[in-house]
């Protein structure tokens, strides 16, 4: 059933927000989102979040970069294959430096691509019911319910030390 009411509970600290999250997960209410000004271990544990997959993008970028760096150096060297001072045209030791720098560069590109795709940025306009205070001093927990269940949901928030709550009707 489509929720009729969204309630944003604003907490002063992450521990209270985490206990509210745990209580909501045990209840029949739907926990929509949590917003916080800082990353919080308590909230992460309460939400039982899986490990991010950003690292896979970083790793893929690094591997691509490593081979790109070497390939570029080897390609350019063989295009102008003069032996200077008896040194090999394809010289792996100096090319290691190019390979290393490209590894880091592409790993960072992979990391950024991973972040943008996983977080889904840019995200404009801002999501519905977002409370700007959540980038400042409050930890916001957004849950949804039917209109008739509003009091029950508010009670869960209050039992867990909510400072303020904001009611939204579903748009």
């Amino acid at each position: 059933m489509r929720p009729e009411r969204y309630i944003m509970g604003l907490f002063k600290d992450d521990h209270r927000a985490a206990t509210a999250i745990a209580a909501l997960r045990k209840s029949s209410f739907k926990l929509e989102r949590v917003h916080s000004p800082i990353p919080s271990h308590s909230i992460r544990d309460a939400l039982q979040l899986k490990k991010s997959k950003v690292g896979l993008f970083t790793l893929a970028g690094g591997i691509i970069g490593f081979f790109t760096g070497f390939a570029l150096a080897i390609f350019t060297a063989t295009k102008w294959s003069l032996i200077v001072s008896g040194k090999p045209v394809v010289a792996l030791v100096p090319f290691m430096i190019v390979g290393f720098e490209f590894t880091v560069l592409f790993a960072v590109f992979g990391n950024v691509i991973g972040l943008l795709t996983q977080i889904r940025l840019p995200q404009l306009p801002l999501p519905e019911y977002y409370d700007p205070r959540c980038s400042g001093e409050y930890f916001g927990v957004l849950a949804s319910c039917q209109m008739s269940q509003t009091d029950d949901l508010v009670r869960i928030f209050k039992e867990n030390g909510v400072e303020q709550h904001v009611l939204h009707e579903a748009r």
């Binding site: 992460r44 790993a107 940025l121």
Partner: peptide, 26 residues
């Protein structure tokens, strides 16, 4: 870029930032 500090954003961001630091160090 529409950052809201949602739990999903922090989950990936914290990890990505750590990788940034780990790559910037060498």
């Amino acid at each position: 870029l529409g950052w809201t500090g949602s739990h999903e954003q922090w989950r990936h961001y914290s990890r990505g930032y750590l990788f940034f630091a780990a790559l910037a160090t060498p």
